[in-house]
Structure formats: C-alpha cells, structure tokens
Design a protein around this nucleic acid. Structure first.
Lengths: 168, 168
DNA sequence: CTAAACTTTCAATAAATTTTGAAAATATAG
DNA sequence: CTATATTTTCAAAATTTATTGAAAGTTTAG
C-alpha cells in the first residue's frame, strides 16, 4: 500500500471511531491528519486534504488547541499560521481523558451524591433507590479515580501498571 | 426531595451522560427507569413516564434486551409484556463494555495492524507513520486487554483490583 | 375460526448536530 | 495609512440521528 493511501485510511478509521464515542468526526480527522503530516500544515492544506470548508477547519483546529493537543507553529517567511499535533499518543490520551472527566463524569458524581442525600423517605423503595445511587457512585467514582491517577502520572503509568496488573 | 422527583432527576442525568458518550439518550433513560422501578413495567408505563411513543419504547427496549441488560418478565393474569432491568450495576458495566469492545475497538485494532504491515515504503516519513500506528496500537490494545479482563472476571474484579492498585 | 389485545415495523417527520461560506474582524506589509 | 492577506464568526443549509404513529403482523382468549 502507498504511504499516502495508508494515511488517508488511518484518518478515516480514526474518524469513525471518534464518531461512535461522541467525538466530532472532523475534529478527530484533523487531528489524525496533523499526526501523520510530515511537516506543519496550514489551514489551506487541511481544507484541501480533508475537503472541508475554511470555517470548519478553523473551528476544529481551535478546539484541538483548546484541548491542548495541537499547537500553532510559526514558519519563517510565511504569513499564514501552521499547525502541528503533539506526537505523543500518551499525551493525547491524557488530555482527552482529563477533559471528559471534568466535563462529564464529575458533574454526574455530584448529582448522584445529591440524590442520595436529598431523599428523606424511608420506604423500602427509597432504600432501594439509595442503594442504586450508591452502586452507581461506586462504579463511577472508581472509573473517575483510575482516570485521575492516569492523568497525574508523569510517565506511562497506565501502560506499565496495567501490564503488571494483568500478569497477576 | 420526593422519591419520585429524585428518580426523574436521575433518569435525566443518566440520559445526558449517555448522550455525550455516543449512547442513545432514550435508551439510557428507559434503562434508568427500569432500574429505579419498584416493579416490572409495561410498554405503556414506559411511554407514559418518559413521554415517548410506543415505537420508540419498543425499539429501545429491544436494544436493551439485545445488550443483555433488560429482560422480559411474565406477569400472571396479564397479557402485556413487562420488563425489568438487571439491578447489578457491575453486570451493566460488563455488558456495555463487551459490546463496545467488540463493535468498536477490535475493528480499529485490525485496521491499525493492517496499515502497519501493508506499507512497504522505507522513507523516513513511512517509518514515522509506522511508529505512530504502533503507538496507537499499543494504547488501544492496552485498553482493550483491560476491558477484556474486566469482562471475563467472575466477580467485581475492576473494583477490588483497581482499589488495590490505587493504594500502591 | 374470529376478534380483540398487544407488538413490531418502517416511511415520514422532527430534532440535533455539523458544515458551509460569505461577511466582519484582525493582522501585516509596504 | 492603505491595501492585501489571513483568520474568525455565525446564520443558514446540509447532514445525521432519533422519534413518531399508523399500518401490518402476531398472539391469545373465547
């Protein structure tokens, strides 16, 4: 297979994975493109390769910059802005995880805890409800704590520790 | 807070979490409703509580049954079908994980591995591409293996083991 | 069997999300 | 400052995804 063909296939695949995990497809594709690019790319280059509009490129590149996984790069003699992706996949994983944890898991934990405390009924049904909330909190907290640990680790914690764990 | 109010709030919260993880909101809400229901519910009861159509109830309940987290229950003297959710949150986590792993992660791993093998170029750029594919494979495989282990465990593996791990 | 109760299907419709593209804003060269 | 290049914004259009509801299918009681 040609390298360029392989790159495009990778960009497509990554885009569909993103879609099924509730991440914008174009955003994932722009990121994938920057990852496999040999050099920093301009907005025009991204537009052309992915066949998307200038506005779309701008919005998604900015989102990626907000997520901290893409950076602007200055190219001497050029007026345009160029973009590069952090090539460290671990960093990508960390950033995405961090963001999702903060925006999605933590608010849910807050609501679950409120619900557990606020229901004052003492019926059998209420007890069952509280038990369910407690169970959901346990699972969610566990996941949240694991992710937190993963994010804070300086080195490839997830890989090394889970490898150890799996050998048990 | 009233118990019924709390139940509705939980159903809403769970629905929005589902949405941002690429899971159908109504499906998550139907499941949440069945989880907090004191008794098995008929399609009519679900329609009424969630204010959704009969067709929508039918489709989502069947999807939940396919996922193995909801079951039909026969109620003596009733002609209608009633539904109950498996109250074990661990079971829910296992089933969802299993399904997503099979449908989403495994196909991606296959493509990544193909791309790594099929590119025959020997340029610097090709080498970098292969390295990227290898890195992505490593992270994805690790996640996949962890999930596999979690699914296969008979008991609350994830909770107990990760708790241990975190105390290190 | 027949009729009523209930479930399933799926084309049409609605809702949510994404994308476009042109106008406005901003930046830089001369 | 002025002209030009470049980026940003955002309302409208397109696309994708979810929902409805009525007709067709199925089951069961009598």
């Amino acid at each position: 297979m040609e390298l360029e063909e392989a790159k495009l296939k990778y960009i497509q695949t990554w885009g569909s994975l993103a879609t099924s995990w509730g991440i914008n497809k174009t955003m994932a594709q722009v990121h994938a493109l920057l990852l496999v690019a040999a050099a920093p790319l301009s907005a025009d280059a991204i537009m052309e390769t992915l066949k998307i509009s200038r506005g779309n490129v701008n919005m998604n590149v900015r989102a990626l910059i907000d997520w901290g996984i893409v950076k602007k790069e200055f190219v001497p003699g050029e007026r345009k802005e160029f973009f590069v992706a952090d090539k460290d996949i671990w960093e990508l994983f960390k950033q995405i995880t961090k963001e999702r944890k903060r925006r999605e898991i933590e608010p849910v934990l807050k609501v679950l805890s409120e619900l557990q405390n606020d229901v004052k009924d003492d019926t059998e049904d209420a007890k069952q409800f509280k038990t369910l909330m407690k169970d959901l909190t346990t699972v969610t907290t566990t996941v949240n704590t694991i992710l937190e640990k993963a994010i804070k680790a300086d080195e490839h914690w997830l890989l090394s520790n889970f490898t150890k764990l799996m050998k048990k």
